[in-house]
Simulated assay, not measured.
Amino acid sequence: MSSHRQLMDGVYRYQRHIYDLTRKYYLLGRDGLIADLDPPAGGAVLEIGCGTGRNLIAVGKAWPKARLYGVDISEAMLETAGASVDKAGMANRVTLAQGDACGFDAEALFGRAKFERVFISYALSMIPEWEMALAQAARCVAPGGRLEIVDFGQQDRLPVLWKRLLFGWLQRFHVSPRRELGLAIERLAQESGGFPHSRALYRGYAVRGGLIRV
């Protein structure tokens, strides 16, 4: 955990100040995921890899009766997230905590182990042990709840040169789109119980996936 935390703090120590401004142009599908969350009134929503808090604030605006939680490995990002949440007037609704996506104790961090909605937005592609993080996320989903994911796709229906340039650029930021994400979600659903889903967005630029917990 410590080495990855140090890497993420190093990557985002300065980028965090312009992260939301620059990423809005290419982290596609985030707002669609948020619009689809539809948590029950009073339901708990957890974002794993909450970064600057941008998504949690958007969830709070879209679903004003939801209780919001965010976990991230980077102290630098959490500092920015806390300031953003305060500025948005949501400090009483959002609880932030530091933790490794691959193995955090939600009960210890948040006082609850299960959440009606859990989502991961463009974070699995930055986590070396991403399948462990996926399994951890599924463990946090309450019965009848949902896990939702959006991340970079394989650019299957886009020009080869585009894919080469994008993937080369992403590597500079330690981002690796997960080709096996759809299959991993299916395996996880079989193992943990649930109904999986996965589909490409924007000609393969992004992928949406997740599962409904039974």
Score class of each variant (00 low, 15 high):
residue 167 F to A: 00
residue 46 L to E: 01
residue 91 A to H: 14
residue 204 G to A: 02
residue 169 W to R: 13
residue 197 H to C: 01
residue 89 G to Q: 05
residue 112 R to G: 08
residue 48 I to H: 06
residue 31 D to L: 06
residue 4 H to R: 01
residue 63 W to Q: 06
residue 198 S to T: 12
residue 73 I to K: 04
residue 137 A to R: 11
residue 184 A to R: 09
residue 27 L to E: 15
residue 21 L to W: 14
residue 188 L to I: 03
residue 214 V to F: 10
residue 192 S to P: 01
residue 28 L to D: 04
residue 39 P to T: 03
residue 177 P to Y: 06
residue 141 V to Y: 04
residue 175 V to Q: 04
residue 187 R to L: 02
residue 178 R to H: 00
residue 162 W to H: 07
residue 28 L to Y: 10
residue 65 K to H: 11
residue 97 A to W: 08
residue 56 L to K: 11
residue 62 A to V: 03
residue 116 E to F: 05
residue 32 G to R: 14
residue 48 I to Q: 10
residue 135 A to G: 14
residue 153 G to P: 09
residue 63 W to V: 06
residue 95 T to N: 10
residue 92 N to P: 10
residue 72 D to E: 05
residue 29 G to S: 02
residue 180 E to V: 00
residue 128 P to L: 03
residue 163 K to M: 00
residue 175 V to Y: 02
residue 137 A to F: 01
residue 26 Y to T: 01
residue 177 P to Q: 12
residue 113 A to D: 15
residue 119 F to N: 04
residue 150 V to I: 15
residue 82 G to T: 12
residue 5 R to S: 15
residue 201 L to G: 12
residue 200 A to W: 11
residue 93 R to P: 09
residue 13 R to G: 13
residue 122 Y to F: 15
residue 74 S to Y: 10
residue 181 L to G: 07
residue 98 Q to G: 14
residue 109 L to E: 08
residue 92 N to T: 14
residue 179 R to Q: 13
residue 104 F to T: 09
residue 117 R to F: 09
residue 117 R to M: 04
residue 109 L to G: 00
residue 83 A to N: 03
residue 44 A to N: 03
residue 94 V to C: 00
residue 31 D to T: 08
residue 6 Q to D: 15
residue 86 D to S: 14
residue 110 F to S: 07
residue 96 L to K: 00
residue 2 S to R: 14
residue 6 Q to F: 11
residue 174 H to G: 06
residue 191 E to S: 08
residue 114 K to M: 00
residue 54 R to A: 04
residue 156 D to N: 11
residue 182 G to D: 12
